[in-house]
């Protein structure tokens, strides 16, 4: 077989090109530590997802400057949304799907993975400066695929917390009885936080300074005299940093029923709070209507 000299030259050049490409990629992997999404994680049941990571998709702190974000993708939303992490942090995303194949892709970055039901994608990412990133699903996942989006907020260190607020109070009290508003504050960071729990009800504002150790939960109970508020509906709001929880208490002349009803009311109130808790907790900056919408989207998607 005779090959022309020029063609031999080109053959060598082509081989150099190919080897050069492979060398560049290898340099990226070995020299720069760029890692592919791989098979590090075990498989999961997409329809159940009841392990501690995905039953409550959230951000968790695992070390100094180290966080883990558990994310689920479903038609046609991401959970949690938005995902909030601090600047100068190393975040490992664990992403899985509840239904079909999606993707989890931070726009304008190299953070990009397929999300396959049954598999968990693991990606470790280093965030430096505070910035907001859009998240898209870039794999067709159904008729509303183009509406599937989310956000990752990288926030300044001093604006970041992993505080969970859950406040409870009775729905109805008799004039003259005390209203107990209990604020349960969980600090999911590893370090202790010092903060103030504030209750606003009627024209009254009461607050209490608390210190909560890392991973601990603090309960603060405010007692308000219903007689002072007077009959009627009174909205109350509990605030911790930028997290709020609010509901309405009705002061009536006389309760229709006995204590049993009191408990039931308490329970219904609790349910509402629990609802906020699932996704309201991670995103203090977002108001409640927004997060509720996200959640109803998600459950709507599940039904389909």
């Amino acid at each position: 077989m005779n090959i022309h000299t020029y063609e031999k030259l080109w053959l060598i050049a082509a081989m150099v090109l190919i080897v050069g490409f492979i060398a560049t990629i290898t340099y990226g992997s070995v020299g720069l530590g760029i890692t592919m999404v791989g098979d590090q994680q075990d498989t999961v049941e997409p329809t159940e997802l009841d392990d501690e990571r995905f039953s409550d998709p959230r951000v968790a702190q695992v070390g100094e400057n180290e966080y883990e974000a558990y994310v689920t993708a479903q038609m046609f939303s991401f959970q949690p949304d938005p995902i909030e992490v601090p600047e100068d942090s190393e975040v490992t995303f664990y992403v899985t799907s509840r239904d079909v194949i999606h993707s989890f892709s931070l726009v304008g970055t190299n953070v990009n993975t397929m999300v396959i039901p049954g598999e968990v994608a693991e990606m470790t990412v280093e965030f430096d400066e505070p910035q907001d990133y859009g998240v898209v699903c870039n794999e067709y996942c159904g008729p509303n695929h183009h509406n599937m989006e989310g956000m990752v907020h990288v926030v300044p260190e001093d604006e970041f917390d992993l505080t969970e607020l859950d406040a409870e109070a009775p729905d109805e009290v008799e004039t003259g009885d005390d209203i107990d508003v209990t604020a349960t504050v969980e600090n999911r960071l590893l370090d202790p936080i010092e903060t103030t729990v504030t209750l606003e009800i009627g024209n009254e504002t009461v607050s209490e300074d608390v210190t909560i150790d890392g991973g601990e939960t603090d309960e603060t109970t405010f007692t308000v005299d219903s007689a002072q508020l007077g009959e009627g509906d009174h909205e109350w709001t509990v605030t911790v940093d930028e997290h709020t929880d609010s509901w309405t208490v009705t002061v009536v002349d006389e309760l229709e029923d006995g204590d049993a009803d009191d408990d039931a009311d308490d329970e219904s109130n609790e349910n509402t709070d629990a609802g906020d808790d699932t996704d309201g907790g991670e995103n203090g900056t977002e108001d409640e209507t927004d997060t509720d919408e996200t959640e109803s989207d998600a459950s709507g998607g599940d039904d389909e």
Partner: peptide
Amino acid sequence: QYLDPGIAE
């Protein structure tokens, strides 16, 4: 499938 979870690097 470079970005597929479940396939080793």
